[in-house]
Amino acid sequence: MRSRSFRRSVLAVSVVLSAAACTTSTDGRPQPVPTVTAAGPAGDRIDVGTMHVTLPAGAKYTAHSQDGLLDGCITEGTVVCEARLLDLREATSDPNAPINLPSAKRPFGWYTGTDVPTCITAASPPGEAATATGSTLVESGFKPVGTKNAEYGRWQVSCEDATQNNEVRMWWLPTSKILVVEYGAFAGWDAKMDTLLTGATFT
């Protein structure tokens, strides 16, 4: 039970501004219920590990969901998971955690799970996405996240359901252990994510 829910939380993962209520799982451990920041007209400031960012106006952030599928998701309008902002410090410190470290040097480097990657898009949120069948790196290097330099990659992802083929962008801060993944990337979201990350601050 722990490894399944832990793996889901690792896939995409984070921290909150409001206090999280808890339920109890079948193994007796407390589990967080969904903790979502409200959508504000000027954008809300959220904390992900040591990183602090301001959401686009009207966007919401789910730090933790009960099933782990929406952990770290940014939501806008009908899009359930436009991008994920994850604090992987706990996951990467556990030698038994089922995790692949993010890397722009491998085909599915944006995917930290050890199971089969899925094609999360605007039309296919986590839990409903088709299996990813390919992931081709088309751009890599470094991009700024606030005053830090993140390992950056962009992949063209092919899916079992070809209508879900899309691009994925990733920023990985290996020292801070913060991962940002943008799903179904296109010009509008790219610009928002670039603005959000350029304005990031750290403590």
Rank of each mutant, 00 (worst) to 15 (best):
A63K: 03
H64K: 14
H64C: 14
D67F: 10
G68I: 08
E76W: 11
T78E: 08
T78A: 08
V79W: 03
C81F: 12
E82L: 14
E82M: 14
A83D: 02
R84G: 04
L85H: 02
D87Q: 11
R89V: 04
E90D: 10
E90T: 13
D94G: 05
P95I: 07
I99C: 12
L101H: 13
L101I: 06
P102K: 12
K105M: 06
P107N: 15
F108E: 10
W110M: 00
Y111A: 00
Y111K: 01
Y111I: 01
V116Q: 10
P117Y: 02
C119E: 10
I120G: 10
T121V: 06
T121A: 05
A122V: 03
A122L: 01
A123G: 03
G127L: 04
E128D: 07
E128P: 01
A130S: 11
T131I: 14
T133Y: 01
T133S: 07
G134Y: 03
V138L: 11
E139K: 12
G141A: 06
G141D: 12
K143C: 06
K143W: 05
V145R: 09
K148R: 15
N149K: 13
E151W: 00
E151G: 03
E151S: 02
Y152T: 08
W155K: 03
C159H: 11
E160Q: 11
A162N: 02
Q164K: 06
Q164M: 10
N166Y: 04
E167I: 07
R169Q: 15
T175Y: 05
